[in-house]
């Protein structure tokens, strides 16, 4: 990538802060995803703010309360709220109500399948809706922490207390329980479908190699891991939770078993969000002091996108082509960077 030209020596850092188009959203932000050409910043409550490449902002109301969960496939967002609703938002800004919890329980987690199927959870129940088929639901032993669809086939991973459950919604009795003591919150499949990784309430990740359910303990974080992102091709899993970005190697068939992670872009602040470039071996990371960096996986070379001195970075994302980077802090001050 031509644009990525860090400084030749390590004492100075190349800065592109002057090329960032600032965005002021005036609302708490918890996530950002690109929908078509526009960045969709997901508010802590009620609204999503679209921002186009000119910095023009358009706000859409999606929930009547807190927005608790969001997933995107690049074509739409699916969100769950504390109003008990599951809604989707398309690139034009059209909101569709997908489901309502009959008891108006919080929609704690959502997931989106590449073929358009979606899943959500309320309490201990996870529900999948695929095409025109009826909703299918499964109850797990404790409240669902996170949901993720496998990249292949209609298979859902459900993170909960003391493990994760793998479930084929179209196959009765197919639930498979992967045990591991502790509370599992976030969950993701590796892009090659070989590994499942959860973020835990403790400051750790846990992984299973799905061929034989062998365990992978990924520990040593000073704080809870809240953000995970697979690098291009799934060679590494970049994670927040430490004062550098922790990248676990997943290129070999053993994944990170018996291997040390790479630790890149150390700062005197905690990494709060991380997003890998969709095509190149680069990632962007936001920190608890507001700093945003672009980092090359190969050698850890850094480019400064945003200086420190603001609330923690809360959202970061690349567009599908990898030509635009969007980010925002907790208070909704952020920016767009065109590469």
């Amino acid at each position: 990538m031509k644009e990525f030209t860090p400084a030749p020596d390590s004492t100075s850092i190349v800065s592109v802060t002057d090329r960032v188009k600032p965005v002021t959203l005036g609302m708490g932000v918890t996530a950002v995803h690109f929908l078509g050409p526009r960045a969709a910043f997901v508010g802590a409550e009620e609204n999503v703010a679209f921002v186009d490449s000119q910095g023009e902002i358009g706000t859409v109301a999606v929930h009547s309360g807190g927005i608790l969960s969001v997933a995107s496939d690049g074509k739409r967002l699916v969100m769950g709220g504390d109003d008990g609703k599951v809604v989707s938002l398309d690139p034009k800004g059209e909101v569709t109500l997908l489901a309502t919890d009959p008891k108006r329980r919080w929609i704690d987690a959502v997931a989106l399948h590449p073929d358009g199927a979606f899943a959500w959870s309320a309490g201990k129940t996870a529900i999948v809706k695929s095409g025109k088929e009826d909703e299918k639901s499964i109850e797990v032993p404790s409240t669902v922490g996170g949901l993720a669809f496998a990249p292949k086939g209609l298979r859902l991973a459900i993170a909960h207390y003391n493990g994760a459950t793998l479930w084929f919604p179209n196959m009765a009795g197919s639930a498979e329980f992967l045990p591991w003591a502790g509370s599992h919150l976030g969950v993701t499949f590796s892009p090659d479908n070989k590994f499942l990784v959860t973020t835990m309430h403790e400051s750790a990740l846990h992984g299973w190699r799905l061929a034989d359910n062998r365990h992978m303990r990924m520990t040593g974080y000073p704080g809870r891991v809240r953000s995970m992102s697979w690098s291009a091709g799934g060679k590494a899993l970049a994670t927040s939770g430490a004062d550098s970005v922790i990248l676990w190697p997943f290129a070999s068939k053993d994944g990170p078993m018996g291997k040390e992670p790479a630790m890149l872009a150390p700062l005197q602040a905690r990494v709060s969000v991380v997003a890998c470039h969709p095509k190149n071996d680069i990632f962007a990371a936001g920190y608890s002091d507001g700093t945003v960096l672009m980092v090359r996986l190969e050698d850890g070379a850094e480019i400064l996108v945003r200086r420190n001195g603001t609330p923690p970075a809360a959202a970061i994302a690349w567009n599908a082509k990898g030509t635009l980077l969007a980010f925002a802090d907790e208070n909704g001050d952020g920016g767009l960077l065109e590469l």
Binding site: G28, D82, W106, S142, H201
Partner: peptide, 17 residues
């Protein structure tokens, strides 16, 4: 021991600070 449900609820409530 902790109340796992509280951890989750507090997290959600903080969105409505």
């Amino acid at each position: 021991t902790v109340r796992g449900d509280l951890v989750r609820i507090m997290d959600g409530l903080m969105k409505r600070k």
